[in-house]
């Protein structure tokens, strides 16, 4: 190696680099934004990244119709507005939307059940992409299926656009419970468990050895208050996605700052109490039981 100037054998788009960005986002809050102005408010409040969207999940739910990748012009405007990473969503299985998002310079792609799925059998093969992907899950098997397809980050799905944390809790408990169950299992038992939950056995073995998912796992879907964010952190997630919860609330800036503080000081009720004061009204929210079965977003994907 020549002194001072090593050959530039840089390796881009490797697994370490993809999963590594998620490591940097840990302990942080990723916020849905629909305009450059909202993106700036999110960055000012201390968001670690923003999710660029045309409509937040609460509006997608209300308006119905097919929800697709956002207008590239909007995504570019948001990329130009902030210095933090910008994520964007593509439909499940829509690898061309993913190719377009990668070409825009998006930092992370969310292959998301919040948009209308484009393929009912196949998720995107995420390995060939240089940009990393995050995918949703409801349990350990689903998380490991997404990782084997190349997802470098996982989020529990929750039920987006409801402002109701109950489904996020259900999914986070299913993942952590599924991992706890592996403790003490021998190799032959792990093979059977892998088959039972539909997970690749090598990834399940790695999960058992680590005692956690092999990638970073955020919570999403229904988080609307600082207490919700801290609840998910105490249940063992690595960070928080907030969709409709911020910009559908009365005072988005104050609420965003409070949720950021709550995610860092999640185990300090005194600081949480202080952060939760005088934030104005939270989004109204929906009782899950009142949503028709076919309108539940979490059941999209498999």
């Amino acid at each position: 190696m020549a002194e001072g100037t090593p050959p530039l054998n840089d390796r881009r788009g490797t697994w370490k680099v993809k999963a590594g960005l998620a490591e940097m986002l840990k302990g942080g809050v990723i916020m849905d934004v629909v305009t450059a102005e909202q993106a700036k408010i999110a960055e000012d409040a201390g968001a670690v990244a923003v999710m660029a969207l045309e409509r937040v999940p609460a509006d997608i739910r209300r308006e119905g119709g097919v929800a697709r990748m956002s207008d590239p012009g909007l995504i570019t405007a948001i990329i130009d507005a902030v210095t933090i990473p910008v994520m964007a969503k593509c439909r499940i299985g829509h690898f061309v939307e993913a190719q377009i998002l990668e070409s825009l310079g998006v930092d992370y792609i969310d292959e998301s059940e919040v948009l209308t799925p484009a393929d009912e059998e196949h998720h995107i093969n995420k390995h060939p992409f240089k940009v990393p992907f995050v995918c949703g899950c409801r349990d350990l098997g689903e998380a490991l299926r997404r990782i084997t397809e190349g997802a470098a980050m996982i989020r529990t799905k929750g039920e987006a656009g409801t402002g109701n944390v109950v489904e996020a809790v259900r999914h986070m408990r299913a993942v952590t419970g599924g991992i706890r169950k592996l403790h003490g299992m021998g190799p032959e038992e792990l093979v059977v468990e892998a088959k039972r939950i539909g997970a690749p056995s090598d990834l399940l073995e790695e999960t058992a050895r680590l005692g956690r998912l092999p990638v970073v796992n955020f919570a999403a879907g229904g988080i609307a208050t600082p207490a919700d964010a801290a609840l998910m952190m105490q249940l063992g997630c690595d960070g928080i996605f907030v969709g409709s919860g911020i910009f559908k609330a009365e005072n988005p800036s104050a609420r965003a700052k409070a949720i950021v503080a709550a995610t860092t000081y999640f185990d300090r009720p005194d600081i949480l109490a202080d952060a939760s004061k005088s934030l104005g009204k939270a989004m109204r929210g929906l009782e899950i039981g009142t949503i028709p079965q076919e309108e539940l977003l979490a059941s999209r994907g498999w």
């Binding site: 090593p6 054998n9 310079g105 998006v106 240089k130």
Partner: peptide, 27 residues
């Protein structure tokens, strides 16, 4: 270095670590 797709792994040499070591550059 640019956006996330420009993040990279490389090797870096330094007397501080007595030779060459792995380095991950992310944004």
């Amino acid at each position: 270095y640019g956006r996330q797709i420009d993040s990279f792994e490389a090797e870096v040499e330094s007397h501080a670590i007595g030779g060459v070591g792995p380095a991950v550059f992310i944004r």
